[in-house]
Design a protein around this nucleic acid. Sequence first.
RNA 1: GUGCCAGUAGCUCAGUAGGAUAGAGCAACGGACUUCUAAUCCGUCGGUCGGGUGUUCGAAUCAUCUCUGGCACGCCA
Length: 576
Amino acid sequence: MTVLKQEGWKELMSNIFEKIREQVVSVTNKAFLSCEKKGSIPGITLPEMSIETPRERGFGDFSTNIAMQVAKQAKLPPRKLAELLVSEMDFSGTYIERVGIAGPGFINFYLNKDWLYDALKIIQKMRERYGEVDLGKGKKVNVEFVSANPTGPLHMGNARGGALGDCIAGVLNKAGYDVTREFYINDAGNQIERFGLSLEARYLQHFLGEDHVEFPQDGYHGEDIIDHAKNYIEKYGDALLSKTTEQRQKALVDYALPINIENIKKTLSSYGIEYDVWFSEKSLHESGAVHKTIEFLKENGYTLEKEDAIWLNGEKLGLEKDEVLVRNNGIPTYMAADIAYHRNKFITRGFDWVIDLWGADHHGHVARMKAAMTPFGVDKEKFEVVLFQLVRLFRNGEVARMSKRTGKAISLGDLLEEVGRDAARFFFNLKTSGSHLDFDLDLAVKQSNDNPVFYVQYAHARICSILRKLAEEGIAPRPVEEVNLTLLKEKEEEELIRKLSEYPEEIILSAKSLEPSRLTRYVMDVAANFHSFYNACRVKGEEEELMYARLVLVDCTRIVIKNILELIRIEAPEKM
RNA sequence: GUGCCAGUAGCUCAGUAGGAUAGAGCAACGGACUUCUAAUCCGUCGGUCGGGUGUUCGAAUCAUCUCUGGCACGCCA
């Protein structure tokens, strides 16, 4: 018999599930060996064993379908094979109390309660570090998100990308990666050109009248452009009227761009996002990195020249078409800069893993960028793009346009003022990135009680209230070693402990899928289990031994909730 | 036209390395506060998993076809 390596099932201190899985796998493997030795089953190759938690508690705490999977190989009916295995199992030294066979051939494992007590012990011992796992093994990962054009305020797409990216970064950090949060400032190129044209038009309109100055067709129509022009005039007057167009645009851009970038920084900061790196696109042009990147591609035969432009050779990279890198006017495209930027991330700065968050409207860019990195020897697996579906705003039941060009959009700053950071972040992290998000402004602005963020925060405040009341009587949680946890016999108590024990597992799954929204839903489950417990059991006023046992449970629940809310940067209030 | 994402309860959504009777919140209805915060809890109602075919012990999950919605296909980013 060959036992395949159990990938990722290394000993993880904080994760009781890992320990249990190891025990189940080990017990089952030994049973296979034992059966083989006796000749009751032929030699077989075991696939990686999947251990799951059955939906129904009656089917045990954990189960495996291994008997069904290898029934053919063993030339035995699944149930018969399961029976043979079970008869050879030795549970000594494990949490396993008994096993059962059910359905088409599932082997169900029933555990004794020690694992629940151990789970609480781990939480109390690790406290704010509970949930940390070593999935990443210190690998350097760069998470780039928002990266909005600094030509205007942040919109709802940025808001979703911001919440998602920041939480992905938080989860990966918890999962043992060395995370860098990064914002790519598009302070060069065409959109800056249009920004300058728009500012100039508003500037001139101020003096010459709106009807006498044509506004650029693809310009930025937002009010903020008019404000910039007005503010500039207030400060510096009409001096630019006598300058050349070029000088005028440069002066206006030099004035307005830093203000926009500063506003973006402020807004994101009040949204709870702190970046490690603000990376300027302009710097890539100025340092010659873009030029060098294009030269590299040229020298290695990845480019074509046609129609007076330099193109990325699509055929050679397995793409459907060629892409322009340098326009016929000699100016590199956004794509050229983006290739240089990612080359910088991988080659210059040596990240092991690069994650970009893009709105789904950029999905066409994914294959291109991934292909464009192969000439630099970057493994495609190291470059991941998380696409999130765009946000649709609803007002009075109607879709509200959110383009910053229309000037009618509600900005992230507006949203934060209206609904607050907690509700906004929670809301944007409730759904998987792939699902469309309809943001009902009326509902969000209402700050109604059905907002799930209050539900979770209330659970935390309730716990703090219990702890506070007991503290007033000089009572504080004791170390589990001094507490009789076997008194926690109620259904609600057990369910709550089980839920708390799943946290490290949730971190692993969130990190692997890059879906932190599952953490948001998980913490709602924790809160729900706590509220049920709260309504079924009392802490204060119970007989002392029981009170101290419940106090451990309550304190552990507080730790988990606080822990997650801190990770997703939402307030954990002690009073509400 | 081609490609990407989505379609699961009245509404908003979970659930996809195939598993046992498909879940939650909201809404609706009925209950629970002299006791640590009722912003809570308990219960009831609610389903052709868009549709068809296939793969197999077993499909919301995989393959294929099809319908519907959103998005992308630029010397824009």
